[in-house]
Design a protein around this nucleic acid. Structure first.
Length: 109
DNA sequence: AAAGTGACTGTTA
DNA sequence: TTAACAGCCACTT
């Protein structure tokens, strides 16, 4: 067993399981990836995914407030994220927020 | 090698 | 309700 960076691969595997029309939070992904409390690492991993254009639904991961996270480093990809989510049937409120009570992914035990 | 930065979150006020 | 702090860890300089 030689590889030591399975953490990111685990994150990608979890994100890939988020169903269409639903969203998950960074903290939730971190917990499912055996990285509880390390949500920032998830954000960093997804930042790299976007650059690689992999088949990972990165747009379905939002912050704990139910909103798309903004960053000057993303230029316009935050708008793209919202557009993709709306295309999956997810609605944003007037405050640009998602109703997590309705759309939050709840993986079965 | 040390310090700074960040697609986050929970607590506190 | 929003805003400020601290904690967390990987990556860059």
């Amino acid at each position: 067993m030689g590889t030591k960076n399975n953490s990111y691969d685990r994150i990608y595997e979890i994100v890939r399981q988020i169903p269409k029309g639903q969203v998950a939070t960074y903290g939730q992904i971190a917990e499912l990836s055996n990285l509880a409390g390390k949500a920032r690492v998830v954000g960093y991993a997804l930042y790299r995914v976007d650059l690689k254009n992999l088949d990972i639904p990165w747009q379905r991961v939002v912050n704990a407030k139910g909103e798309v996270s903004n960053s000057p480093l993303r230029f316009g990809t935050d708008y793209l994220q919202r557009s993709l989510l709306e295309g999956e049937g997810i609605c944003f409120s007037d405050a640009d927020k998602i109703d997590l009570r309705k759309y939050l992914w709840q993986p079965k035990l």
